[in-house]
Amino acid sequence: MKKSVIFGALTVAGLAAGAAAAGTLDDVKARGKLNCGVTTGLVGFAAPDANGNWDGFDVGVCRAVAAAVLGDANAVEFVPTTGKTRFTALASGEIDMLARNTTWTFSRDVDLKFTFVGVNYYDGQGFMVPAELGVSSAKELDGATVCIQTGTTTELNLADFFRANNISYEPVPIETNAEAQQQYLAGACDVYTTDASGLAATRATFEDPGAHVLLPEIISKEPLGPLVRHGDNNWGDVVRWSLNALITAEELGVTSANIAEMSAGTNNPEVNRLLGTEGSLGEMLGLSADWAKNAIMAGGNYGELFEKNIGENTPIGLARGLNAQWTDGGLIYSPPFR
């Protein structure tokens, strides 16, 4: 901290120094803030509201980690990143973790040296077309003009899909979601493609959502999850198990409403281990015993976060689908706390 003041005096705007050798967890604790990379604005996942507070599903994950590590869900510095800057921001240590609907792929994991700690949303790329076109399948899109939001795996999936089906298309890559929508609504493209969740969120903001249909094809697997740098396994564990704590809490029925009474002690030993009244899981992670309790209290368990930000009662209106608990036939599954 000393160093930062000196540099601050030197450079006016200030260098924030953090001792990387000590490990990210110690850095975060010493700083008292978690630097979390998010998107520059995607309603439902991470977007600042009119008062400048960040809100959304990915933001909820950041807050849970901050609460687990620091005991304060608001001790997060949200760093907006673009598709271009996100990996550098993480690799250079500007952010401690990235929760920016980033798809877990082989090359990002192996070549770019990042550790995906889990999946918080199973997504897939879909298509939206105006209902008046009368298209019912993506395979009928031969010769169509397709608007894509750049900076994601979207371009590659799209090229693969059209190539595999031997049909042609014209891509129009657009930098921001808002501009892509504008092009789509003005008829400059026939189709808008991005992750199905994003399409739903986008359609929700249209003047007449009923005039647009989502095609049934989902052309890719997009497991979105938070990620950290390779090489700091301790920190990776903290983020991984914070996410798992949210998932397990839903599975075990621990909600932000009943967590106070449950943390007094229950008959279920796994709940007790999770909430720190039994065993020493927190200590093993290098955190306090009630870390998971804090994480859950930050914004509720996985299900609560989902319902509050992107669930069926929100304008975005996504069904749980693949993202239901494994006990309900979904893919959301946490390893046991033991």
Binding site: L42, T176, A178, Q182
Partner: peptide
């Protein structure tokens, strides 16, 4: 604004146009 800083143009292209209230005001 191209490198995710929210200057005047960045605010317009980012948070304001992306918000549900003002999506479509150019």
């Amino acid at each position: 604004s191209v490198i995710s800083m929210f200057d005047l143009v960045g605010m317009i292209r980012g948070p304001i146009l992306a918000s549900t209230e003002w999506n479509g005001v150019y």
